[in-house]
Design a protein around this nucleic acid. Structure first.
Lengths: 334, 334
DNA sequence: CTGAAAGCGCTTACAG
DNA sequence: CTGAAAGCGCTTACAG
């Protein structure tokens, strides 16, 4: 029983075409006619049907935000912060954001012409096959890294350089045995961070050993807390840790406390990304900052341009990262 | 140039009706015909158009998640946690979730027949008028409190009781001067928490005074940190604080550290809601737990029922809360 | 400035 | 089991 254009046209004594014109602000309607139509629209409380419009215009007005599945990651402030950027970017446009968390939702969303474009959040190749992504024929921009040479434009932090800066900072503070807490290696992010860690360790003439690396199954802090504690006890030679995400760093701080290590007196900790929360916890987290909101905004801007049919020049936008010293890093004890 | 039913019908040498039937799993298609159609669909890489389907079925397959605007609140783990519950609940269904953060997005989403139903997150009357909500004629369920007697089904934590439990717990630990950190009073949540705080203070024969209440403009920790520090210094008689959200409690802990108060030795802090993060920070936050994921799931379940046309019996689902003692509460010093 | 008509991609009685 | 046809609510040439 919703009122359609037909209803207002009938009541206003004009054609559907005229109604359509005033609604979409197209020229070619007389002042008087327009006024009449607007009145009737108000009276009838007319609400345009975007679906019908989309059918003829061949657009949905929706863009998909695809979040990696597995452990739910929206709790990870990294995602919510970038999401904030996306929301801000999209807010100036007429697009809605449709979220997708599971592979079921992804299929439903991406294979049913329900969206005009998609933003892929730190996609893992294991979960999102390139072939499938290309087959859906939608404009895609990825946030973070996907494949080493993906065909999609991407905007990402310079993780490798960020990790490098973190390691160098600890080195400057006198640390010579620097550990690394990393996420799962099926994430390109982890691969790049590890690369940055390893290269920097070696270029500073420290010894790289797998024993100094603790790999978590997910970018979640809960995961493997017991193991992490054990790792800390067994590797007491390590005086400082770099973590490939702030969230991981928070977990490390927790585990350190459990086994009686004081931060930063006994152990220095550096995160990665600088999510808003990191400056608000106690002790405030030393980390490597990157403009996460900017990344989200930029990604949405690129997608919008793609949607407008504009050619984009740069396939890859890299955001630089900068070390921020807060309260979890200190000079190494003798 | 996307392929439509017409294309597959043509190529398969059958009618559009038959194609439609096999796609929606309707009976009345011969085995052979179906096989042929499926083959052609594969061959042509056919993708159904949900928009077109929605037009005739009068449904969109989308449900709107409306988040309060103002300061972006997705960073608040309360929201992301409940959102996780909603996502889980919706995952079993065929609905997509469309997010809306700003009033612009809300209008666009809710006034254009773009969604079948809406979940309202802790709506504030100031921002979301009842009249407007009713005029859009969509099934609505609210999470948290809206108006004291809203017409929409709602699922919410028992905030009043939760605050009560927090105050009582501090009382048991010997605290006789208990402060309260609250969110903005235009949020029903704040109103109820304050009520719980005040009533409990009085029923325990302590003196209720506005001076012990610190009100933050938003449920954000960043806001007014300076003022909070000043407040702590000027009110050193207060030995324990209840906060109307964990996020606020984290901010309080930070401020306390800044002014040299040790937790829990000098000051006890209790949060509200028990977001996942609360157990992972250092010190782990004592708080009042509620099943946030359950709330999200329940809300989506109710909305789905509404969408199916089922009558719902209970207008209000209240989740009980339980105090959890962790590391931010202690016996009061003499 | 205005309207009749075709068409977007689908579903669903209706008739065979 | 199968198909022709009407219709969902819109937009847009086309003709006046």
């Amino acid at each position: 029983m919703t009122v359609s254009m037909k209803d207002v046209a009938l009541k206003a004594g004009v054609s559907i075409a005229s109604v359509s014109r005033v609604i979409s602000g197209k020229p070619g309607v007389g002042k008087e006619t327009e006024k009449k139509i607007r009145e009737v629209m108000d009276e009838l409380d007319y609400r345009p049907n975007m679906g019908a419009r989309g059918l003829v215009m061949k657009s949905t007005g929706n863009i998909a935000i695809v979040i990696p599945r597995g452990t739910f990651t929206l709790n990870n402030p990294f995602f919510s912060t970038v999401l904030e950027g996306i929301a801000k970017g999209l807010d100036k446009t007429d697009y809605n954001m449709v979220m997708s968390f599971t592979s079921l939702q992804q299929k439903r969303l991406l294979e049913t012409q329900s969206v005009d474009g998609v933003i892929l959040f730190a996609p893992r190749y294991k979960e999102l096959k390139l072939e499938w992504l290309e087959s859906i024929g939608l404009p895609i921009v990825v946030i973070g890294s996907y494949l080493e040479d993906s065909p999609f434009p991407c905007v990402r932090p310079n993780d490798e350089m960020g990790t490098k800066k973190a390691v160098e900072e600890l080195y400057k503070l006198g640390h010579r045995n620097i550990g690394f807490i990393n996420g799962p290696m099926d994430s390109m992010h982890s691969v790049k961070c590890l690369r940055g860690y390893k290269n920097t360790i070696e270029s500073l003439n420290m010894e790289y050993t797998k024993n100094n690396v603790f790999e978590v199954g997910e970018f979640e802090i809960q995961a493997r807390n017991q193991d992490l504690e054990k790792f800390l006890i067994e590797n007491s030679r390590i005086t400082g840790f770099v973590c490939s995400s702030d969230y991981l760093a928070i977990g490390l701080i927790k585990a350190a406390g459990k086994v009686g290590l004081k931060i930063p007196e006994d152990l220095s900790v550096v995160g990665l990304d600088d999510v808003p929360l990191s400056s608000h916890i106690t002790p405030a987290l030393s980390t490597v900052h990157v403009d996460l909101i900017g990344i989200g905004k930029r990604a949405s801007a690129i997608l919008i341009n793609l949607l407008k049919g504009k050619q984009i020049r740069k396939k890859e936008i890299v955001f630089e990262m900068d070390f921020i010293s807060r309260d979890t890093t200190g000079i190494v004890k003798d």
